[in-house]
Simulated assay, not measured.
Amino acid sequence: MKRSFLPLLATGLLTLASCGDNKSATAENGNASDNTMTSSATGGDTASTTMPAGSDKPENQPQNAGTAQGTAGNGAMTGAEAGALGDPNGPTAPHKDDKEFMMSAAHSDQNEIQQSKMALAKGVTGMAKDMANKMIADHSKSTADLKQIAAKKGVTLPTDMDAEHKALAPAMEKLSGKEFEQKYMAQMQADHQKTANTMMAHEKMTQDADLKAFITKTLPVVQQHLQMAQQNNNMKM
Protein backbone atom coordinates (compact mmCIF):
# COMPACT_ATOMS: atom_id res chain seq x y z
CA MET A 1 0.00 0.00 0.00
CA LYS A 2 2.76 2.45 0.94
CA ARG A 3 4.64 1.75 -2.26
CA SER A 4 1.57 2.30 -4.45
CA PHE A 5 0.64 5.50 -2.62
CA LEU A 6 3.97 7.27 -3.06
CA PRO A 7 3.87 7.37 -6.88
CA LEU A 8 0.37 8.80 -6.73
CA LEU A 9 1.48 11.50 -4.28
CA ALA A 10 4.41 12.45 -6.46
CA THR A 11 2.16 12.71 -9.51
CA GLY A 12 -0.24 14.98 -7.62
CA LEU A 13 2.53 17.31 -6.51
CA LEU A 14 3.85 17.59 -10.06
CA THR A 15 0.37 18.42 -11.32
CA LEU A 16 -0.05 21.20 -8.74
CA ALA A 17 3.32 22.66 -9.63
CA SER A 18 2.43 22.65 -13.30
CA CYS A 19 -0.85 24.50 -12.63
CA GLY A 20 0.97 27.15 -10.62
CA ASP A 21 3.42 27.77 -13.45
CA ASN A 22 0.58 28.13 -15.95
CA LYS A 23 -1.19 30.72 -13.76
CA SER A 24 2.01 32.76 -13.42
CA ALA A 25 2.55 32.71 -17.15
CA THR A 26 -1.04 33.72 -17.75
CA ALA A 27 -0.73 36.59 -15.28
CA GLU A 28 2.49 37.77 -16.88
CA ASN A 29 0.90 37.66 -20.32
CA GLY A 30 -2.06 39.63 -19.01
CA ASN A 31 0.20 42.29 -17.53
CA ALA A 32 2.12 42.52 -20.76
CA SER A 33 -1.14 42.98 -22.67
CA ASP A 34 -2.27 45.69 -20.25
CA ASN A 35 1.05 47.46 -20.63
CA THR A 36 0.71 47.30 -24.40
CA MET A 37 -2.79 48.82 -24.26
CA THR A 38 -1.65 51.55 -21.88
CA SER A 39 1.27 52.36 -24.12
CA SER A 40 -1.02 52.52 -27.16
CA ALA A 41 -3.48 54.79 -25.41
CA THR A 42 -0.71 57.09 -24.23
CA GLY A 43 0.71 57.21 -27.72
CA GLY A 44 -2.71 58.12 -29.10
CA ASP A 45 -3.09 61.00 -26.66
CA THR A 46 0.32 62.31 -27.51
CA ALA A 47 -0.43 62.25 -31.21
CA SER A 48 -3.74 64.02 -30.77
CA THR A 49 -2.29 66.91 -28.75
CA THR A 50 0.87 67.50 -30.76
CA MET A 51 0.76 70.88 -32.64
CA PRO A 52 3.09 72.18 -35.34
CA ALA A 53 5.93 74.32 -34.08
CA GLY A 54 5.03 78.01 -33.93
CA SER A 55 1.27 77.44 -34.24
CA ASP A 56 0.72 79.07 -30.86
CA LYS A 57 1.97 82.40 -32.19
CA PRO A 58 -0.71 85.06 -32.86
CA GLU A 59 0.22 85.40 -36.51
CA ASN A 60 -0.42 81.68 -37.05
CA GLN A 61 -3.80 81.65 -35.34
CA PRO A 62 -6.94 81.82 -37.55
CA GLN A 63 -8.48 85.27 -37.61
CA ASN A 64 -11.97 85.87 -36.34
CA ALA A 65 -14.16 86.88 -39.25
CA GLY A 66 -15.94 89.34 -36.99
CA THR A 67 -12.81 91.47 -36.63
CA ALA A 68 -12.49 92.22 -40.33
CA GLN A 69 -13.37 95.81 -41.20
CA GLY A 70 -14.88 96.88 -44.46
CA THR A 71 -14.40 100.20 -46.21
CA ALA A 72 -17.65 101.46 -44.76
CA GLY A 73 -16.03 101.64 -41.32
CA ASN A 74 -12.87 103.53 -42.28
CA GLY A 75 -14.39 106.99 -41.89
CA ALA A 76 -14.45 107.72 -45.60
CA MET A 77 -17.51 109.56 -46.87
CA THR A 78 -19.75 107.54 -49.16
CA GLY A 79 -21.01 108.86 -52.48
CA ALA A 80 -24.50 109.30 -51.06
CA GLU A 81 -23.17 111.28 -48.09
CA ALA A 82 -21.04 113.51 -50.31
CA GLY A 83 -23.99 114.10 -52.64
CA ALA A 84 -26.17 115.13 -49.72
CA LEU A 85 -23.70 117.93 -48.93
CA GLY A 86 -23.79 119.49 -52.36
CA ASP A 87 -25.09 118.84 -55.86
CA PRO A 88 -23.88 121.02 -58.76
CA ASN A 89 -26.95 119.92 -60.71
CA GLY A 90 -29.36 120.76 -57.89
CA PRO A 91 -31.03 124.11 -57.07
CA THR A 92 -28.49 126.94 -57.16
CA ALA A 93 -28.33 130.69 -56.72
CA PRO A 94 -27.75 132.78 -59.88
CA HIS A 95 -24.15 132.54 -61.09
CA LYS A 96 -24.07 133.03 -64.87
CA ASP A 97 -20.70 134.79 -64.52
CA ASP A 98 -18.13 135.56 -61.83
CA LYS A 99 -19.71 138.87 -60.84
CA GLU A 100 -23.13 137.30 -60.34
CA PHE A 101 -21.56 134.50 -58.30
CA MET A 102 -19.84 136.99 -56.01
CA MET A 103 -23.10 138.90 -55.57
CA SER A 104 -25.03 135.74 -54.68
CA ALA A 105 -22.26 134.57 -52.33
CA ALA A 106 -22.34 137.91 -50.51
CA HIS A 107 -26.13 137.70 -50.20
CA SER A 108 -25.79 134.17 -48.87
CA ASP A 109 -23.42 135.34 -46.14
CA GLN A 110 -25.82 138.09 -45.13
CA ASN A 111 -28.81 135.73 -45.16
CA GLU A 112 -27.14 133.50 -42.58
CA ILE A 113 -25.70 136.33 -40.50
CA GLN A 114 -28.95 138.31 -40.25
CA GLN A 115 -31.15 135.27 -39.56
CA SER A 116 -28.70 134.07 -36.91
CA LYS A 117 -28.66 137.45 -35.20
CA MET A 118 -32.46 137.24 -35.08
CA ALA A 119 -32.19 133.76 -33.56
CA LEU A 120 -29.86 134.94 -30.79
CA ALA A 121 -32.12 137.91 -30.09
CA LYS A 122 -35.00 135.49 -29.60
CA GLY A 123 -32.99 133.48 -27.08
CA VAL A 124 -32.60 130.20 -28.94
CA THR A 125 -30.94 127.39 -26.98
CA GLY A 126 -28.97 124.21 -27.52
CA MET A 127 -27.88 123.35 -31.03
CA ALA A 128 -29.80 126.28 -32.52
CA LYS A 129 -27.76 128.67 -30.38
CA ASP A 130 -24.51 126.93 -31.31
CA MET A 131 -25.52 127.09 -34.96
CA ALA A 132 -26.34 130.81 -34.79
CA ASN A 133 -23.02 131.72 -33.19
CA LYS A 134 -21.10 129.64 -35.72
CA MET A 135 -23.01 131.15 -38.65
CA ILE A 136 -22.16 134.69 -37.60
CA ALA A 137 -18.48 133.89 -37.05
CA ASP A 138 -17.88 131.77 -40.16
CA HIS A 139 -19.92 133.83 -42.62
CA SER A 140 -18.29 137.03 -41.39
CA LYS A 141 -14.93 135.47 -42.28
CA SER A 142 -16.06 134.42 -45.74
CA THR A 143 -17.50 137.92 -46.30
CA ALA A 144 -14.10 139.43 -45.50
CA ASP A 145 -12.37 137.01 -47.89
CA LEU A 146 -14.85 137.73 -50.67
CA LYS A 147 -14.55 141.50 -50.22
CA GLN A 148 -10.84 141.33 -50.98
CA ILE A 149 -11.46 139.45 -54.22
CA ALA A 150 -14.33 141.74 -55.23
CA ALA A 151 -12.22 144.85 -54.60
CA LYS A 152 -9.53 143.56 -56.98
CA LYS A 153 -12.16 143.06 -59.68
CA GLY A 154 -14.08 146.29 -59.13
CA VAL A 155 -17.24 144.59 -57.84
CA THR A 156 -19.33 146.19 -55.07
CA LEU A 157 -20.93 143.52 -52.90
CA PRO A 158 -24.39 143.76 -51.28
CA THR A 159 -24.50 144.18 -47.51
CA ASP A 160 -28.02 142.89 -46.87
CA MET A 161 -30.14 139.78 -47.36
CA ASP A 162 -31.55 138.92 -50.78
CA ALA A 163 -35.18 139.63 -51.69
CA GLU A 164 -36.33 136.11 -50.81
CA HIS A 165 -35.02 136.27 -47.26
CA LYS A 166 -36.20 139.82 -46.73
CA ALA A 167 -39.70 138.63 -47.56
CA LEU A 168 -39.31 135.70 -45.16
CA ALA A 169 -38.14 137.81 -42.21
CA PRO A 170 -41.55 139.15 -41.02
CA ALA A 171 -42.97 135.63 -40.70
CA MET A 172 -39.87 134.52 -38.80
CA GLU A 173 -40.19 137.49 -36.44
CA LYS A 174 -43.66 136.30 -35.40
CA LEU A 175 -42.37 132.91 -34.25
CA SER A 176 -40.86 132.13 -30.87
CA GLY A 177 -39.53 129.29 -28.75
CA LYS A 178 -39.21 125.82 -30.24
CA GLU A 179 -41.33 126.78 -33.22
CA PHE A 180 -38.82 129.45 -34.20
CA GLU A 181 -35.87 127.12 -33.57
CA GLN A 182 -37.32 124.45 -35.84
CA LYS A 183 -38.03 126.96 -38.61
CA TYR A 184 -34.59 128.52 -38.23
CA MET A 185 -32.75 125.18 -38.44
CA ALA A 186 -34.86 124.08 -41.41
CA GLN A 187 -34.01 127.34 -43.17
CA MET A 188 -30.31 126.84 -42.40
CA GLN A 189 -30.43 123.44 -44.07
CA ALA A 190 -32.21 124.74 -47.17
CA ASP A 191 -29.92 127.78 -47.48
CA HIS A 192 -26.68 125.85 -47.10
CA GLN A 193 -27.81 123.16 -49.52
CA LYS A 194 -28.33 125.81 -52.20
CA THR A 195 -25.06 127.57 -51.34
CA ALA A 196 -23.09 124.31 -51.53
CA ASN A 197 -24.73 123.48 -54.87
CA THR A 198 -23.88 126.94 -56.22
CA MET A 199 -20.25 126.76 -55.16
CA MET A 200 -19.76 123.30 -56.64
CA ALA A 201 -21.37 124.34 -59.90
CA HIS A 202 -19.43 127.60 -60.21
CA GLU A 203 -16.14 125.92 -59.40
CA LYS A 204 -16.57 123.93 -62.60
CA MET A 205 -17.59 127.01 -64.57
CA THR A 206 -15.15 129.72 -63.53
CA GLN A 207 -11.65 130.23 -64.88
CA ASP A 208 -10.81 132.78 -62.18
CA ALA A 209 -8.02 131.51 -59.91
CA ASP A 210 -9.05 133.76 -57.01
CA LEU A 211 -12.62 132.49 -57.03
CA LYS A 212 -11.50 128.89 -57.37
CA ALA A 213 -9.32 129.35 -54.30
CA PHE A 214 -12.19 131.04 -52.45
CA ILE A 215 -14.53 128.14 -53.21
CA THR A 216 -11.91 125.56 -52.23
CA LYS A 217 -11.52 127.28 -48.87
CA THR A 218 -15.17 128.09 -48.19
CA LEU A 219 -17.09 125.08 -49.52
CA PRO A 220 -15.99 122.68 -46.73
CA VAL A 221 -17.20 125.21 -44.15
CA VAL A 222 -20.57 125.49 -45.89
CA GLN A 223 -20.82 121.69 -46.05
CA GLN A 224 -20.06 121.49 -42.34
CA HIS A 225 -22.88 123.95 -41.63
CA LEU A 226 -25.21 121.91 -43.83
CA GLN A 227 -24.29 118.72 -42.01
CA MET A 228 -24.95 120.34 -38.62
CA ALA A 229 -28.40 121.44 -39.75
CA GLN A 230 -29.20 118.04 -41.25
CA GLN A 231 -28.21 116.20 -38.09
CA ASN A 232 -30.32 118.48 -35.92
CA ASN A 233 -33.34 118.23 -38.19
CA ASN A 234 -33.04 114.44 -38.46
CA MET A 235 -33.10 114.22 -34.66
CA LYS A 236 -36.37 116.15 -34.61
CA MET A 237 -38.05 113.72 -37.03
Rank of each mutant, 00 (worst) to 15 (best):
L16P: 05
S48L: 12
S142L: 04
V124H: 01
H192F: 07
T206Q: 02
T26M: 11
H165C: 03
L157M: 03
D97I: 06
M172R: 02
G12M: 15
A213N: 04
T26F: 10
S18G: 12
S55I: 08
K217M: 07
P62G: 02
Q189V: 12
G79R: 07
G20M: 12
S104G: 01
K141M: 08
D21M: 15
K57N: 15
A190C: 06
R3F: 15
S176I: 10
T78C: 03
L168W: 12
T11P: 11
Q148L: 09
S108T: 14
K236M: 14
K99I: 00
M228I: 10
G20F: 13
N111C: 09
G44S: 14
L85C: 05
K117H: 03
D98E: 04
D45Q: 10
N35G: 11
G20L: 09
M161Q: 08
D130H: 11
P52I: 15
T42G: 11
E100Y: 00
M185K: 00
A137R: 10
A10S: 13
D45N: 13
L8K: 15
M188N: 10
N133R: 10
L168A: 15
S140Q: 10
Q69A: 06
A84S: 02
K174L: 02
P62I: 06
Q230F: 06
K194A: 02
T198S: 02
H225S: 04
D34A: 13
N74C: 07
M161I: 12
G90E: 00
D210C: 04
K129G: 04
N29I: 14
T50M: 06
Q63C: 10
A84M: 02
T50Y: 05
G79I: 04
S24L: 12
A128I: 13
K23P: 04
T125F: 06
E81R: 01
P52S: 14
E181K: 10
Q63G: 11
T71W: 03
K129R: 07
T218V: 08
M118I: 14
A209G: 03
A41S: 15
Q224V: 10
Q193T: 12
N133V: 13
N29S: 14
M37V: 14
V124M: 06
Q69D: 04
M235V: 09
A10G: 12
M127A: 14
T198M: 04
D191E: 10
K204G: 02
H192S: 08
A68W: 07
T92R: 00
N133M: 09
K236C: 09
E203P: 03
K204M: 04
P88D: 00
A32E: 12
H202D: 00
A186H: 11
A163P: 02
A25E: 11
M1Y: 15
T42N: 12
Q63E: 11
G90F: 03
I113K: 09
Q182I: 07
Q187D: 11
D130L: 13
P88R: 00
S104Y: 00
L14W: 08
L120P: 00
F214S: 06
Q115I: 03
Q207W: 05
I113T: 01
M77W: 08
M1A: 15
S104E: 06
A196N: 08
M127V: 12
G86N: 01
G73K: 09
A65T: 14
Q223L: 01
A65I: 11
G43C: 08
L13H: 04
E181G: 01
S33C: 09
K96N: 08
A229Q: 01
S40H: 13
A151G: 09
M127T: 13
P170F: 01
T15K: 08
K141F: 04
